[in-house]
Amino acid sequence: MSVGEYIRESQIWRSIFRHPAPYDRRNRAVVMLTNFFLHLHPVSVKQGGIALSYTWCMGGVTFFLFLVETLTGVLLMFYYRPTLEWAFTDIRALRDVTTLGIMREIHRWGAHAMVITVWLHMYRVFLTGSYKPPREFNWVVGVLLLVLTLLLSFTGYLLPWDQLAIWAITVGSNMARATPVLGHEGPGFQLLNLGGYDLITNASDARFLLLGSRFVGEETLNRFYILHCVAIPLVVATLIAIHFWRVRKDGGISQPL
């Protein structure tokens, strides 16, 4: 008996993998059904449905990048402190002295790549008409995921707390000032007033809600940190689960049922 066989016959191995290795047709089907990570997939698919020149693999790449961002992001969270005093210094230290500081490089490039791949995924889904019935709603979920990907990238952009960060967020969030009715420089903000006093001011409008302050400051850093590391990823993870589940329920990535 070889060592490999000995391991595969052991009680420990068989308690984890409840079936023989996927060497024959039957066990290749069984492995898909009994493995938690693999059960996301069906047992068999149409050959055309997995051809790279058809799928472009961009949805899968986006998901993988989300995992990379989660992993590198958690590692960065052990190191980085979201305060005015430390944010910039910590990032600079990651660049200059910290072991495995390259996690920050991977995190940032992965984030850019994720924005691009999510667009390309949407491009492919559109061009193959894969949003057509019965998959209409999954396209809507996909659009929400696109927005959340952009928001993840946007909130993360602030965290290094350098000039690039605060001014990009300042420019981006200035738009919220002009929200109709709810921004203090938006059309119709005067409509919300009580006895002549405006309810919408620069300390109570949509931009203030976003920044936690009248300008991009420490409250913003804290707010964006929570959004970036906890709030948005939780929503994204939930929507990804729904997105994948619906792909299965709708009978694959495209073509009428």
Partner: peptide
């Protein structure tokens, strides 16, 4: 990540507005 360092500019300063100021 090895070939290209992620950008890190000067520390944030609320009084030094870059020209042009660009969103992401």
């Amino acid at each position: 990540g090895i070939a290209l360092q992620a950008p890190l500019e000067e520390p944030a300063s609320a009084v030094k507005t870059p020209n042009p100021s660009k969103a992401p």
